[in-house]
Simulated assay, not measured.
Amino acid sequence: MNILVINAGSSSIKYQLIDMDTELPLASGLVERIGLEEGVVKYKTFVNGEKKELKETFPIPNHTVGLKRVAELLTDEKVGVISDPSEIQAVGHRLVHGGEAFTKTVEITEAVKAKVKELFPLAPLHNPANLIGVEVAETVFPNAKQVGVFDTAFHQTIPEKAFRYAIPVEFYKEMGIRKYGFHGTSHKFVSEQAAEYLGKEDAKIITIHLGNGASMAAVNGGVCVDTTMGMGPLCGLIMGTRSGDIDPAIIFFLAEQKGYSVNEISSLLNKESGMKGLTGQTDMRDVEKLLDEGDENAILACDMYAYRIKQFIGSYAAVMNGVDALVFTAGIGENKTSIRKLVCQDMGYLGIEWDEEKDKNRTDGVHEINTDNAKTKVLIIPTNEELEIARQTLEVVK
């Protein structure tokens, strides 16, 4: 079975076609700058061990034009990997927010689409774009089953004592204000990989997803029991441009003393804070250059970044009454030795002991970077959200 995975944003479509017999991608790419003067389509194929790439630039006024071009490329005589769109039996869509309505992956019906619309206020930047992707895919691939995989679903097992906020009850009951969490597809994928590696179904695992957006999850026996992001993706860890946890009094202070509007404060905390606010840089590679130059702001920022992660490791070890493994994943988590070192140092009380040589000599797949005698495993596991979406889609349609 061939499954097309789609992640539709407000001005982009990320896609990957996966052969589920081998679980390998046949093609992948990105449609971006939708609605602007010049759009871009990037397309890669992976056939018989050979990779081909092409890039096109032309006006892409809407998502329909972009996805139709992707379908044409997939079936093109020269660069295509299938002969007809009907060879795509299912389309798996990344849907960011499922609220409390969606605790698992579902086939998309009119009722599902209506519910996703109801949830627009919880994810105003993501859910509308995600739904556009669904509706366009229905027209471009009419014979394929459309399936929704929700970022929040994996976290719906979090107990009420962990997901509720200590505010008047009616705000939860009438407006759904509670912790939901995000990056669920990634946390699910790597925690399952870790449990399989450990050979322990009841493993207590802390997953650490570090990209431009960052979050952690406490996974006990395959069940998520807590996560760092909340009702939205702002809280928890320090991120590329997001502040992570702050004292709410700061918001009132800025409004009262600086006259900032709600929108200005939201922009400040979401787009101008985090590593950007501390160092002027959002990319950890650029931050590392500053580190090498001895930049004091970069040194402090990385210390703060790691300190926040360590705080949650301690918290989640307490919540689960132990920890069997830490898992580093996503762009920074998988690639930045300096961050892993900062996080793991002085954590011997929890059985966490980092091995520098193992970290430097990384191998593909699950890679162990703890010392031989450490009680707690420290693992690097590459995330694969597209494959996880495809697997969940297959479970629904097979």
Rank of each mutant, 00 (worst) to 15 (best):
C224N: 10
P128D: 01
P142T: 03
V116S: 05
E110Q: 15
V134H: 00
K117A: 12
R164Y: 01
K145I: 07
T152Y: 15
A111G: 10
F154P: 00
G133A: 14
K188P: 12
T103Y: 11
G133R: 03
G92S: 04
V219Y: 06
G213Q: 06
K104Q: 15
G98F: 08
M229C: 11
A111P: 03
G213A: 02
Y180E: 12
M216W: 04
V134T: 07
N143I: 04
I205M: 10
P168R: 11
V140C: 07
V225S: 01
I158H: 01
L125I: 14
S186N: 10
F189S: 03
N130I: 00
N143M: 15
A111L: 02
D226H: 06
V149E: 12
G230M: 05
G221V: 01
Y197S: 03
D226W: 09
A114I: 01
G221D: 00
Q156T: 11
F182E: 13
G92N: 04
L119V: 14
D151A: 03
K200V: 04
E135T: 15
T105S: 05
K145P: 04
E110W: 03
M231S: 10
H187I: 07
A137P: 11
M216E: 01
V116C: 07
F189N: 07
T139H: 06
G92T: 10
Q156F: 05
R164A: 02
G221Q: 01
T139Y: 14
A166R: 01
D202W: 00
A162V: 08
E160W: 02
L131D: 08
G184I: 02
N130V: 06
Y197V: 12
F120A: 13
V136P: 00
P233E: 12
V96C: 04
K161Y: 12
F182R: 04
Q193N: 13
A218D: 11
P121E: 15
A166Y: 13
N127R: 00
A144Q: 15
T185K: 14
F163Q: 00
K173E: 12
H209S: 00
E174S: 11
G232L: 13
A129V: 02
I177C: 02
A114T: 09
Y172T: 10
H126P: 08
K200Q: 06
I132S: 06
N127T: 14
Q156S: 13
K200E: 14
V96I: 13
V225E: 06
M175R: 01
H126M: 09
Q156P: 10
G148W: 03
V140H: 01
S186D: 14
A123Q: 00
G148A: 11
R164S: 09
A137M: 08
V225K: 15
P124Y: 00
L125Y: 03
K173S: 04
F163W: 07
G199F: 08
E201C: 03
I206T: 09
F102K: 02
I177H: 12
I158D: 07
F141L: 08
G230V: 07
G213E: 06
A111I: 05
N130P: 09
I205E: 02
S186Q: 08
V112D: 15
L210T: 13
K200M: 08
A214K: 08
H187E: 01
E170D: 07
A166M: 09
S191M: 04
N130A: 07
I108K: 05
F189R: 10
P168Y: 09
E100T: 13
A123G: 09
